[in-house]
Design a protein around this nucleic acid. Structure first.
Lengths: 108, 108
DNA sequence: AAAATATTTGGCTATTTTGCCAAATGAACA
DNA sequence: TGTTCATTTGGCAAAATAGCCAAATATTTT
């Protein structure tokens, strides 16, 4: 794998990696319903504000969400809605795996 | 976020996390063209066989690929092709970010 | 200007991930 | 059976990630 191809896959992995965390997946899904400020997300997630802020920073650096300061609050928005399509596929991976588990059990 | 919801997002994150690595993204894309054995993938990636084997194991545990031993070789297949849709979206995240960068430069 | 509220950043530790080497296992073949 | 080839596993060290607290910054309010 040459350097150019390597760089391409690294860029792609950065985006996917940014989504690869329970809280960050939650944030993405929540923002798909409309913008939310840090305090609202923190409340829902139930972690330290600083932790949530860092999760938001990861998603923002990856270009998945964008921020908008309005007064004391910062509102976050989903910038690329197509990431929502991930969920359907992830669900089907889970379903496929579950079905296979079932098949294995039936054979017993 | 209650325990049930937490568990759901953790399960989802496990799948996405399994894809969140340059080599593993490469493997997924490569397998979309048809099955490949470990030695072929190792050759293409250019890392240690044991490293590639572990990447494959991560993808298999997540239920994204499946293995089939035929003689001395083990062939891997993409089990859930919808993960390929990720690429298109990832590309559009990259593109959107690039466009924004360009806008910022124009203002200078 | 001081106090209060919202958010980010720095710093630290604990945990996880990565990637190599060496060793073990599985299968084909002389 | 012993040898060779393909793959996996164990183990280790380096690097990255996660989450909390404390401190800094930004904004509004008193």
């Amino acid at each position: 794998m040459d350097a150019k191809k390597q760089a391409l896959y690294e860029a792609r992995a950065r985006i996917i990696k940014a989504m690869a965390h329970p809280s960050r997946l939650f944030i993405v899904e929540e923002l798909s319903r409309g913008e939310k400020c840090v305090c609202e997300l923190t409340e829902m997630i139930g972690a330290d504000v600083s932790t949530v802020s860092k999760h938001l920073s990861v998603l923002r650096s990856a270009g998945i969400i964008s921020d908008d300061r309005r007064g004391a609050q910062v509102y976050y928005t989903l910038r690329v809605p197509c990431v929502l399509n991930f969920f359907g596929c992830v669900e089907s991976v889970l379903k496929t795996t579950a079905k296979e588990q079932l098949q294995l059990l039936k054979k017993t």
